[in-house]
Design a protein around this nucleic acid. Sequence first.
DNA 1: CAGTATCCGATGCGATACTG
DNA 2: CAGTATCGCATCGGATACTG
Lengths: 240, 240
Amino acid sequence: MCAKGYGQFCPVSIAAEVLSERWTLLVLRELLAGSTRFNDLHRGVPLMSASLLSQRLRDLELAGLLDRQPLPSGKGKSYRLTEAGEALRPVVDGIGLWGTRYMRTQYAPENLDPSLLMWDMRRWIRGDRMPSGHIVIRFDIPDAPLQKQHYWMVKEDGSDTLDLCLFDPGFPVCLIVTGRLEILTRVWMGNIEAEHAVRSGQLTLDGVPEIRMSFYDWIGLNPFVHLAATQGIDSARRIA
Amino acid sequence: MCAKGYGQFCPVSIAAEVLSERWTLLVLRELLAGSTRFNDLHRGVPLMSASLLSQRLRDLELAGLLDRQPLPSGKGKSYRLTEAGEALRPVVDGIGLWGTRYMRTQYAPENLDPSLLMWDMRRWIRGDRMPSGHIVIRFDIPDAPLQKQHYWMVKEDGSDTLDLCLFDPGFPVCLIVTGRLEILTRVWMGNIEAEHAVRSGQLTLDGVPEIRMSFYDWIGLNPFVHLAATQGIDSARRIA
DNA sequence: CAGTATCCGATGCGATACTG
DNA sequence: CAGTATCGCATCGGATACTG
């Protein structure tokens, strides 16, 4: 009968026809976070198949939330939110805030993924607060699957953005951060304070004191934690 | 592999596992609008099968958004949002607002439904602004399917809430409002001003002048229109 | 009335393979 | 690399029938 939509004139219903499709909200989150390339978007939703991501991007374009431009470099396309898509930022933020406050399944084992964590951290870590020079930080996650126990964050001199490597880039490592996946995730989500995690030995920092001390300054937090703080919600109080 | 969820620790993802299920947002809208009984909820999402509504209500309960209490009257249950569910109001409002502003398919024929329109109007029409006494308003929708051309809104003396009848309740009718389905829907959605619709003959009022004049006072508008007005968005400007 | 169980068909989606 | 087409299965959800 009703192929797809909800058959209602209510704007919530019309909006839900786009927004409630499986994965769409997460793709939107990635776009709002600033990813513009297919593979970057895909790294943010690694469990989604490429074909489905492609499909959803087309859906979003059709719904007028997304603009797809061929790249000047010839290969590939650039995906950018339109005004309508950008206007969903408060909605997606609101959903994230609500999730932070009320949902408890965040740290279930099946929701933890070292690569995803690192990819998320890479985007928000404050490269501009790191010491100058060529900085390499290694993250060690001993309880992760073998292929996913080591990650390298690389900051070139002069640039503030980071590169995430899954293999040893070869440069000398300035700092090794070691912690179990859940701990690292909780620290990142503002659920455990970084200082506390280090003091209690849940997180280990290995490197020269200068860089070790700077850690707390640049490690940063997932953006929803900042949002929550704005609204007076304290993530740390919610330790399960 | 991933049975159901998204396998991500991000709060947006956790929230989306509940919120992005098909129909869930609309059920939530109904709950937020104040419906507490199964059949009332169902009238708000008539195209949803009862079994699926039942299922979704259970899902919402399980996720902690909904509280299901047996009614003192013995039969049936009462559904009420928990604090967590209530906390989604700004999100659902935000989605509705966004839909009002950016989505254009609202008035596609397949989204228009006279019964749903009447049910929505019933909830928000200002009974307290109607003249006192036993008031019966009949709505005539000449282009609706035969069984759905006539609706009666009944206000008992002393009560401010309205009853919606699909059959002639037998009392004398004070006012007949006639208009095509799309016109009635657009007026209700603030897309056409009621006065304008009447002046231009798109809407017809038939009754004694006193009640005819009061129409503009109690007819009201869908709540998202009020919200939009608060935010400086003018629905009337968006006539397609 | 107020739901719930079951059945079966449509479709959504992941895996795989393919292309410029 | 940056996607897109195809295929086949899993599951979602509507219809129907049933129960307190």
